[in-house]
Design a protein around this nucleic acid. Sequence first.
DNA 1: CATACCGGTTAAGATTTGATGAAGAGGCAA
DNA 2: TTGCCTCTTCATCAAATCTTAACCGGTATG
Lengths: 240, 240
Amino acid sequence: MSNQQILLIDDERGISDPLSYALRKEGFEVTCSYDGQDGLRRAQSLLPDLIILDLMLPLIEGLEVCRQLRGDPRTREIPVLMLTARTEEIDEVVGFNMGADDYVTKPFKMKPLVQRVKALLRRPHLKEQSVDVVSRQGITLDRLHHRAVAEESELPLTPTEFKLLWTLLRQPGRTFNRNELMDASRGEDANAFERTIDVHVRSLRQKLGARAVLVETVRGVGYRFRDEPHESVVTETNAI
Amino acid sequence: MSNQQILLIDDERGISDPLSYALRKEGFEVTCSYDGQDGLRRAQSLLPDLIILDLMLPLIEGLEVCRQLRGDPRTREIPVLMLTARTEEIDEVVGFNMGADDYVTKPFKMKPLVQRVKALLRRPHLKEQSVDVVSRQGITLDRLHHRAVAEESELPLTPTEFKLLWTLLRQPGRTFNRNELMDASRGEDANAFERTIDVHVRSLRQKLGARAVLVETVRGVGYRFRDEPHESVVTETNAI
DNA sequence: CATACCGGTTAAGATTTGATGAAGAGGCAA
DNA sequence: TTGCCTCTTCATCAAATCTTAACCGGTATG
């Protein structure tokens, strides 16, 4: 029972039978389900370590199953491996951002698929859970209440500035180019002058005051939020 | 160089020019190649994150390029997006099972294609093996954070120096000629003065300090990153 | 030894890049 | 409507970076 449990949701016996066989031979415990509704119920009762999900399912579509899995806190973190018939479907799935963790196109070879399964199970589960509060270097952002606080005082950020800082703060040290920041701060409106970001960064820095140095410029690339503490800020912090 | 690199292999300027422009505007680094042979060579020296490949090419056919890319362990895992003239061709291509990851029929709209590119690059299993950190001989490059570290201290590299070192470091021991290094560091126009590379190498060596010897000159050919920590005596003996 | 070739070095000039100030353009509520 | 507020665009400047070209010394070759 120390074996890892896999829930396989697929209505085609021609696929699920050999697949479940191959997985069992690898030492996994496999439970099969042949439609979406049943699969969803089993997922919630079994809480397996991994779910393999066909995109085309009777009763409930694969995407809907995935959505509901993600909506339930008990199953939210279970990795999902999606089976799709065509490459283009992957785009859709990715587009819907349904949170599948990997995709395999049918027809597939058994060995690579098992490899993928193992890789997913091996993966450290630092999946970015939906976080509403981020706090770094004395700056705290709460996106539910749309509040930004630096030490004591509240920062009056505009929506764009807020999203910008949110993006930077969530992955401190990572450098974002202007396009990524554009996307992050303005949704998917892709066609805008890149340098607009510079202006937002500027006003952001102004409002950050002494902490402005935390938003670093990476020349030729973009911007990033400083990872390690900065001397002048520490001094400032102490002084307050 | 937090940016992802795309190699575009297409001989029709009417296609490759606007496409490379669109991709660059999206923040990708794009290198263009106008025939199969050259494209193959560039793929092997650049090791881009994605390759866009026209099916009809001079010198070597697209399918043959694809086959050879799949045959080389260095390029085997790089996703390939194939451009084809007619829908029926897709079937043929799929039939040959040449391992292209996606197909787009010409003529295509710019936006959807860019979407496809992004989707391909976002695919989880590709993400897992795409390399963002390279570390050799005590030097570590992280293109996501855009950081270069030697032992303890951070190296303040300019964008060009970073890309140069990134290229050398990814395939230690392999000698790159100046054109290849030009490509890698300047992405765009390959028709610049070759000796420019020498100057970049020099400033790179200066910043590397004691580790400067790791960037070796191969007289008459180009440069390479040293593979072995010490003298090549052992290597010689083993080689014979 | 002479010579052509090659890479190292240097500095000046050209180009690119980001910061900044300011001027519209909409949006929205009073 | 007017009066903010926010976002975008543009022009300009200074600094960082890249390229070019000239000069130098080492090396292979005859």
